[in-house]
Design a protein around this nucleic acid. Sequence first.
DNA 1: AGGTGTCAACTAACATGTTAGTCAGAACAC
DNA 2: GTGTTCTGACTAACATGTTAGTTGACACCT
Lengths: 233, 233
Amino acid sequence: MADVDVSKLSLPDNTEGLPTDRVYKSVKAAIMKLDFAPGATIRKAALCDWFQVSRSPVADALNRLSVEGLVDIVPQSGTHVAKLSMRAIREDAFLREALEVASARHAAGHRSEKTIQRLTRNIEMQTRQVEDADIEEAFETDVEFHRIIMETTRVSRLPTTVRTLSPNVDRARLLMVPAPSRLADTIVEHKSILDAIKRSDGDAAANAMRQHVRQLVRRLEPLEAVRPDIFSH
Amino acid sequence: MADVDVSKLSLPDNTEGLPTDRVYKSVKAAIMKLDFAPGATIRKAALCDWFQVSRSPVADALNRLSVEGLVDIVPQSGTHVAKLSMRAIREDAFLREALEVASARHAAGHRSEKTIQRLTRNIEMQTRQVEDADIEEAFETDVEFHRIIMETTRVSRLPTTVRTLSPNVDRARLLMVPAPSRLADTIVEHKSILDAIKRSDGDAAANAMRQHVRQLVRRLEPLEAVRPDIFSH
DNA sequence: AGGTGTCAACTAACATGTTAGTCAGAACAC
DNA sequence: GTGTTCTGACTAACATGTTAGTTGACACCT
C-alpha cells in the first residue's frame, strides 16, 4: 500500500506544546480528515523529518493512536492507517447510539429551561443555515445540538468519549455527498427529540434519538461498494 | 503520598511476550485489584528493577495506562495511581449503564434459543452458587451473565470497552463487603431481564437492566465517607 | 513565627545507538 | 512456469545517554 503524504499534515512549524502532543494531534487530524488514506503506510522516519523531532515522540504518538484503533502497528514490520470496514462502522455506531440515546433520556429526565432554550435556538439557527445553504455551518450546528444534550449528563468527557469510540463513523461520513434533503430531515428529527425533552418523556426522547442516529449508519451502508479501496472486508 | 509496593506485582520472572505488554498487564492488574493504592506514587525505576527491563517499556506501559485514566502522569514530575472520586464513579456508571442497557435491548430484539438457554443455565448456576455460599464463583457467574447479553450485539470489543470505560466502578466495587442478601436480589433482577428478553420486549429488558445496574452505584455511594484516604473530592 | 527566594535532587521527555523480527524479492530447484 | 529457500533491507522494540521542568526543603529575610 502507498505511503501517506506527510505534506498534508498541519502545523509543521508550530513549536508550541510537547512534541509528542503536536505529532499526535496532527496525525490524528490527518487520519480523521482522510488526508491519510485508510490502509496507507505511515513511515516514522518521514514524520521525524517533517516535525524535526526524534523517533521517541513519533513512536509515542503512534502508540496512542494505536490504542484508539486509528493505526495498526505490526510489530517489527510497519505502521498503517486503519482501514475502514462495515463491521467496524456498525460496531462504532452501536456504541455511539447507546451513549446518545442514554444522553437523550437523561436530558428528558433532568430538563432545565436553559437547556430547552439552547436547543430551541440551535434548531432555529440550523433551520436558517439550511435555508441559506450554509452546509458547513449547518453541520457544525448539528454537532452542537448533540453536544448540548450530552452536557446535561454532567459527564464531561462524554463528547470526547463518543468521538473516540466511533472514529470510523466520522471518517466514513466524510465520504458521503451531503444530500440537502437529508439536512431538512435532520431538523425534523431534532425537533421531535426536543419535543420529547420538553415533555420530560424519557422513553420518547430515547426513541427519537435512536431513530435519528440510525439514519446515519443506514446511509453509510452503501459506501463499501463504492469505495472498496479503503475498506477491508 | 506513599510509593506503591512493587512486590505485589505478578509475573516478575515470566519472560513471555513483549516486555511492554508484561509491564502493562501486570501494573494494570495491580491497580484494578487495589494492590496499588489510589494516589500512591509509581516509581519507574522501581518497575525497571522489578521487571529487569529498561525505561522504555516501562514508560510505554504507563503511557497506555495514562490514556485509560488509570494513572496520572505529571509532566517532568511524577506518576501516580489515579485516585477514586465519586464524580468519576458516577461518570463511569453512566457509560456502563448506557452500554449495558443498549445490549439488553438488542438481546431482546435479536433473541435466539441458544442465548436464552445460556442465560437460563447461568441463572440456575448462580442460584446454586449462592445457596452454597460460593461468593467468588457467584460473582464470576454474574459477570458471565452480562457478557452473554453483550455477545448478542456481535460487537466483539464490547465487554472490553465497558470495562475500559468504567475502571473506577470495578475498583470501588472491591471495597464493598459483599452482602449475601444482595446476591439474592441480583438473581431476581437477572430473572426479570431474562423474562423480558424471552418476551422480545426491548423496553422491558432495557428498563430491567437499568434498574439492575443502578443498584451497584447506589451501593457505592457511601464509600467516599468510609475511605476518604483513597478518594479525591 | 511566617513568608519568600534559592537550590539540589528527582522526574518525565527527548535523542540516539542497538537488537531482533518481518517481508519482499532474488536466486534456485524442480 | 511454479514453488521454495535464502538473503538483505527495512521496521518496531528496546537500551541508554541527555535535557529540561518540577518540587520540596532549607536558608534567609521581614
